[in-house]
Amino acid sequence: MVRAIRGVLIECEPAIKSIIVHLDSANNDIIIEDLDEQHLVVKENMVHVLKQKLEDRLKETYRPEEPLADSD
């Protein structure tokens, strides 16, 4: 019997996907279905939390912005 499951489709780079899979492995409370290299379906109510966690994880890789010389 065909099923329709409510969720949010996420499309991202494989590297980001592997981080999401890793975040999920702690409690298995995020991912509904792992689709392929660049797609997965997650729970609707977890998207916000996921974005937050991803942001924290990626923070250290950000280059700080070099201040522009400005003569206002």
Partner: peptide
């Protein structure tokens, strides 16, 4: 934006390949 999100529905567990193809 490291990821693109789309809210919706995942359709799976089709009885026949035909049913999947048609829908």
């Amino acid at each position: 934006e490291r990821m693109r999100t789309t809210a919706g529905f995942l359709f799976k567990d089709f009885d026949t390949p035909d049913e999947y193809a048609a829908l």
